[in-house]
Design a protein around this nucleic acid. Sequence first.
DNA 1: AGAAGGACCAGTGGTCCGTA
DNA 2: AGAAGGACCAGTGGTCCGTA
Lengths: 256, 256
Amino acid sequence: TPRIIDLNSRFLGLSEEPVQQDKEAAGSGGGGPWEVAEKKKKQRGRKGPRPRKVVDVNLEDENDDDEYGGGCGGMERQREHPFIVTEPGEVARGKKNGLDYLFHLYEQCRDFLIQVQNIAKERGEKCPTKVTNQVFRYAKKAGASYINKPKMRHYVHCYALHCLDEEASNALRRAFKERGENVGAWRQACYKPLVAIAARQGWDIDAIFNAHPRLGIWYVPTRLRQLCHAERNGAGAAASSSVSAGAEHSVILKPY
Amino acid sequence: TPRIIDLNSRFLGLSEEPVQQDKEAAGSGGGGPWEVAEKKKKQRGRKGPRPRKVVDVNLEDENDDDEYGGGCGGMERQREHPFIVTEPGEVARGKKNGLDYLFHLYEQCRDFLIQVQNIAKERGEKCPTKVTNQVFRYAKKAGASYINKPKMRHYVHCYALHCLDEEASNALRRAFKERGENVGAWRQACYKPLVAIAARQGWDIDAIFNAHPRLGIWYVPTRLRQLCHAERNGAGAAASSSVSAGAEHSVILKPY
DNA sequence: AGAAGGACCAGTGGTCCGTA
DNA sequence: AGAAGGACCAGTGGTCCGTA
């Protein structure tokens, strides 16, 4: 049975100072590469339906708040509640999780990475610089079963915006909450301000991630990389002003 | 049929200025972790003998110098000549390759990596910082069929010594040539001065590799990492003098 | 015996799609 | 319909061991 650690307590606050600025945050503005479909079907080579793990208990709509004990023997783990768009400091009600909690998960992963790194150094093994499968495995063994790779990878760029421009991120959250948009729409909208940040900084999204102490441990999402690339190559021909590396006549592809 | 490039010409010179200094280079000095066996048998899960590619031509001892054409149609590629211990500047005679040529292969891999990086940047794909499988594949497609992963990984630490302390590397080559040692013995002997360098610099062998512009693109070999770790943990209790991070009483394991 | 390298394998990065 | 995450898969890092 896995070791339980202190990180399993549910999220409790982390309210941030209210903001006012907006930048280019809100809106699902149509043009450019934003229209590109995010999913393309890929053949899996698998035949027949994918088998599923059997689950003992199947509480479809139970009321117990202690369902997330972390490694409680015999009790089958349930899915996390879905995220909803919340303002900074707002705690989600009902069977929902807020976005401060989402971002808190990224901080927890960072703590787990640091622990994995310390163990690796002690043992003289190679030391990960990013959140790898090994870190997710460690988190699970440590009792943080609510952390998993697909979820964390899915929202990395949202966390990136939170790290790189917290005020824009907060403004976007407020705007999407007010409009009653769902999490998927908010998540999609997080790409655009990030691409704008990349444009301002010379398009090197990897360098932007790596330069940030908390963001640098996350792989740049493929989709974000693609969007930056598409936008750099004239997808929005009205190229922005202060590009650092002389890319004025930037219709032709260039190395960074 | 693969594209042929200019790098396939055989190695021709690269002589370096003669050196005199020796440091702790020569000798196969017995104590400490140097005794640890380098190979441990590992079960492969494979049953029966491993199948081999069929080879059309089987010239066991032919005399043609043009056997390495690189992608010459119909002509089956032969193995590279084995390495022998040569002094700096010395060209191996007969069906042998010298160590300057070995190190030249590392420089070629660096060139291939740079090309792969440039392509990746142009395409907006993720950009490798190390010599990966992708780079070896690219080298092969570019006609450098004499470059392969097992060989390059096998001698990485020899190249590391060449990069980090060329004079010690040169002295070691001269000493082992004079003693008539084979390449395997020379290769083994390259570990010791590297561990000494690591000791002087606070034991962080990854940082030492990464700080060097040509060495930083190579993964630290497992064996070198293990030797540094073993030595740091008192394998040679007469711990050396100028360790940077205060590790004076270093019998107990410590993070870097 | 000494050495080069094809080919294997455990575990990775990435994310699809059956599930709730 | 919207979302969480088990599980899959192509390609990786690492190096063994059949081969010459």
